[in-house]
């Protein structure tokens, strides 16, 4: 299967895990991002994710490359789902295999933080009392240069 994938189908965690299995791996760290119901006082009914698919897959691949530069023996696979997701559905699954556990934990943490910075995917919250695109409403994230850190060659 593709190591870096945007899909509109439900994610099968085992497929993502299997794709990083390696005979020199001593650890596979898996991060699963799921749809949360309560954010403060706001109650989510369901979510809608949209992506710029070809570019999002390229940026996921870039994260894999960055991980390999930082942890040379690491193998990374990431699948992110788009479309309409219900509470507790899996939005993203990240698997990283490394020879030793410490690197696997660090690299999977790195991957999810980086997804939130550079991968063109957007989440629309459908709350019980309205809807909102997340990420662009409050102006808390700005990119004066037009891009996040470390993505322009």
């Amino acid at each position: 299967m593709k190591m870096f994938k945007i899909t509109s189908e439900p994610i099968n965690n085992q497929d993502v895990i299997d794709s990083v299995a390696h005979h020199n791996a001593g650890a596979i760290s898996v991060f699963i991002g799921t749809v949360r119901e309560m954010t403060g006082q706001k109650q989510t009914k369901f979510l809608h994710y949209e992506a710029y698919v070809p570019m999002a897959e390229k940026q996921l691949e870039r994260i894999g490359t960055e991980i390999q530069e930082k942890w040379p023996s690491a193998i990374t696979a990431i699948t992110h789902r788009i479309g309409t997701l219900q509470i507790s559905d899996i939005a993203v699954t990240i698997a990283v295999s490394t020879p030793h556990r410490h690197d696997a934990f660090e690299a999977s943490r790195y991957a999810i933080e980086r997804i939130k910075e550079i991968v063109p995917i957007w989440k629309k919250e459908h709350y019980t009392d309205g809807e909102e695109w997340i990420g662009n409403q409050k102006g808390t994230t700005t990119y004066p240069a037009g891009h996040p850190e470390g993505v322009v060659k």
């Binding site: 570019m55 102006g139 990119y143 240069a145 037009g146």
Partner: peptide, 17 residues
């Protein structure tokens, strides 16, 4: 509204303004 906060890409690669 808010387009000045958008990231920019040309042919699927991030670029500058």
């Amino acid at each position: 509204s808010g387009i000045e906060n958008a990231l920019l890409a040309v042919n699927e690669e991030y670029v500058e303004l």
